[in-house]
């Protein structure tokens, strides 16, 4: 098993990235970038976030993102109430065409989701049964002492980044970050994504109850995306700081 014993002839004898890990890494890279791009396109059609089940231009927003000039056309006809009482919900006609051409964004998002989730399931099964998660990704109990965690945090804050070992022997915070991405953020993205599907929530209403409604799931989907974006940023910075060429070689040709 090359991933543990290392290649004969490698002077240092440190293990290298297994081929299936390298393949998974780049499938993940391409599909996550595609998901980020198409997800942003989808968001631009309605850059307002809400909590609960319902939210639209005639109800208050939790957060409004300044990311789409197109959306700022606004313009609504006089609102008319549905019922007699003062607090009645209203309806109003949108007076402009939203010039919305994002049908392809949603199709691409779902296509990229398939390309991430199907290999992702293989990756997770291989990681569990092949021991990769246990030996490389999941932090060990004796590593997780406050003293060691604190030392690693301070090292990172001072930018004391050790040169790349170019293999799956990760540092403590690195393991924590990878564990959060693989076991928390990625599953949360999938499940909040499914919670936005009218067909899937009809079959599994628990999904809506879990997150407190469609719009809550959409908002959590967005903030988890922001967290993943931060991860990707830090990840790339660390790759550059620890020796970009060697790291790229290690994750592609596996040397």
């Amino acid at each position: 098993m090359a991933e543990i014993l290392g290649e004969p002839g490698r002077a240092s004898g440190v293990p290298r990235h297994a081929r299936w890990v390298r393949i998974s890494h780049w499938i993940g890279t391409v599909s996550i970038l595609t998901l980020a791009f198409s997800g942003f396109v989808i968001l631009m059609a309605h850059p307002r976030l809400y909590w609960g089940d319902a939210g639209n231009d005639l109800t208050p927003a939790l957060l409004e993102l300044p990311i789409s000039r197109n959306y700022e056309h606004r313009g609504w006809d006089q609102a008319t109430p549905f019922f007699q009482d003062a607090a009645s919900p209203v309806t109003a006609n949108r007076t402009y065409d939203i010039f919305n051409q994002n049908g392809w964004g949603r199709s691409l998002h779902l296509l990229a989701a398939w390309c991430l989730v199907l290999p992702g399931v293989v990756y997770v099964l291989a990681g569990i049964f092949g021991g990769h998660f246990r030996s490389h990704i999941w932090p060990k109990a004796n590593e997780l002492t406050p003293r060691l965690v604190w030392r690693d945090v301070v090292d990172h804050l001072r930018f004391r980044i050790p040169p790349a070992r170019c293999g799956p022997h990760y540092a403590l915070l690195q393991k924590c970050a990878y564990s959060l991405v693989v076991f928390v953020a990625a599953p949360l993205m999938v499940v909040t994504g499914l919670a936005m599907s009218p067909a899937i929530t009809a079959a599994f209403p628990l999904l809506l109850r879990l997150f407190g409604g469609f719009q809550s799931a959409r908002t959590i989907h967005f903030f988890t995306f922001i967290a993943l974006l931060l991860f990707v940023f830090v990840h790339v910075v660390m790759v550059i700081k620890s020796g970009f060429r060697r790291q790229i070689r290690a994750m592609t040709v596996g040397e």
């Binding site: 231009d57 919900p89 309806t91 109003a92 929530t201 009809a202 209403p205």
Partner: peptide, 25 residues
Amino acid sequence: LLPRQSLVREYTPKDITSFPATGTT
């Protein structure tokens, strides 16, 4: 994969919200 005739959630009258009219009005 999905059950064939599962029903979407139905709400109560107090859950009714404002409703934009978009596209052709």
